[in-house]
Design a protein around this nucleic acid. Structure first.
Lengths: 257, 257
DNA sequence: AGATGTGAAGTGATTCACAGCT
DNA sequence: AGCTGTGAATCACTTCACATCT
């Protein structure tokens, strides 16, 4: 789930399980909410409920970070916020570039959660010359030609790809060549990257398909053990699953004014 | 990662592992691409490469669906597309509603991958009366007042929440009350739902934070085993992790009593 | 020969349950 | 008395390796 080709051998002594890392942001968010309400301490039980996990898991997760709690009392909210932030690397701020300023790219640029969590949108990049100079989320869009220059002069190591699928690998290659080592990919394609580069993928249609699977199963259960196979046209299925006929793939390239 | 409160005991005989279900859409996409190029058959090795997994895993995954391959030959592309589509429930089309037509909601509405994969956007819903009637992606936005009516008259069972965090739980409750049993949540909040309702979450800032963690570790390894602890201001950390003071800041209060 | 399908072994994550600290 | 921190047990997923079939 995590990356395309990572093979982190977990040789490092500081081996925090991947599953734990994936939950730290969840805890951080819950803790931040408590912090804003000036709650001084919290028990594993309470925090777990707020984060949507069970308390044993939470305690085990925290045990990988160290012993930051107080027995009989709980965890100091502020201290824990700091420790998790540090662990996640959020005490520095990360410049990110977003490539592909269509609907989705614009949504990402406007997403408030970035700025407030240690990330800074260093640049918005799009291949369409007509987009160049247009302000999106208060930042002028730059042309793809500038990509390498932007990456290097800003020391960007994290890139977000929100281009159509057909352009994604090419953009990815350029990002990596320019020095980016972590990529968040919204395009519905498998990206190939060299060792040492992390890729995480977010795919809207995959999430929906997983929901559909469970939804179908619910319906099937009502009707009895045999899910009442919808026989239907074998041929239809290929069409159902088919990509749009668009020039290249899914993600819409343009954005309305 | 899957759901908020699912507890599917996998009692059903047809127990396909969750991890396998999560990969089926990946295989389906790769197969669809092959199908469009009129490739008749594919080996586990080839398909695995196209989907970005290893071949043993793929074969094991397929073994849960049945024996759809031919030894010595491989898998029939069209047939497999059909089988996976059916397994995922994509041979019927699912009406979905999208609630919250901001940047992200609009991006989702325009996302071509829905229509082509068994999903149909039945309605776009927003709380802002000024949005009502405006066409987004060719569909007129409807006001939240219509929510229950829309759900019921269209038989919608899948809802997408793209509202600000503060509104998400309330929207979720209404969706569920009206009959929605699967929710894809883009708001950065933990949703509480009754048993039998599935929730999947997509959270942009969480994905970035996970990348930041790995990115930091890469940087740390160059510099030596001890990541050079940045002592710094303990106070600063709370700010770093804190929500922006924006109009409707992300994280709402903790659990209601 | 060449590929699938699958028991068995291995690895990783979750849950249990309780010892140990405050 | 209460809550953390953690070994041990359990469960889930992955990988191996090879018997089996075309």
């Amino acid at each position: 789930m995590a990356t395309g080709r990572t093979h982190r051998p977990a040789t490092r002594s500081r081996g925090i399980p991947e599953a734990t890392v994936a939950r730290l942001p969840l805890y951080l968010r819950a803790l931040t909410a408590l912090s804003e309400r000036s709650v001084p301490t919290v028990s594993s039980e309470e925090l777990a409920a707020a984060a949507g996990v069970n308390s044993a898991k939470l305690r085990k997760d925290f045990s990988y970070l160290g012993s930051y709690g107080t027995r009989g009392v709980g965890y100091d909210v502020e201290y824990l916020v700091y420790q998790i932030s540090r662990e996640l690397g959020l005490t520095q701020d990360w410049p990110v570039v977003i490539v592909g300023i269509g609907n989705l790219g614009a949504a990402l640029a406007n997403y408030g959660g970035f700025a407030s969590r240690g990330f800074r949108v260093a640049a918005l990049i799009d291949a369409d010359p007509a987009m160049a100079g247009k302000p999106v989320a208060g930042i002028g869009v730059q042309h793809t030609d500038e990509l390498e220059h932007i990456i290097e002069s800003n020391g960007v190591s994290i890139g977000v790809i929100a281009t159509p699928a057909g352009a994604a690998q090419q953009v990815c290659d350029r990002l990596v060549a320019a020095g980016v080592t972590s990529i968040l990919n919204f395009a519905p394609t498998v990206l190939t990257v060299p060792d040492g580069v992390d890729v995480r993928k977010v795919d809207l249609s995959i999430e929906l398909q997983i929901l559909a699977f469970h939804e179908q199963r619910k319906a099937g259960e009502e009707a009895g053990p045999d899910g009442g196979a919808p026989v239907a046209a074998t041929r239809a299925a290929a069409a159902v699953a088919g990509e749009g006929k668009g020039p290249d793939g899914d993600v819409p390239a343009v954005m309305p004014a």
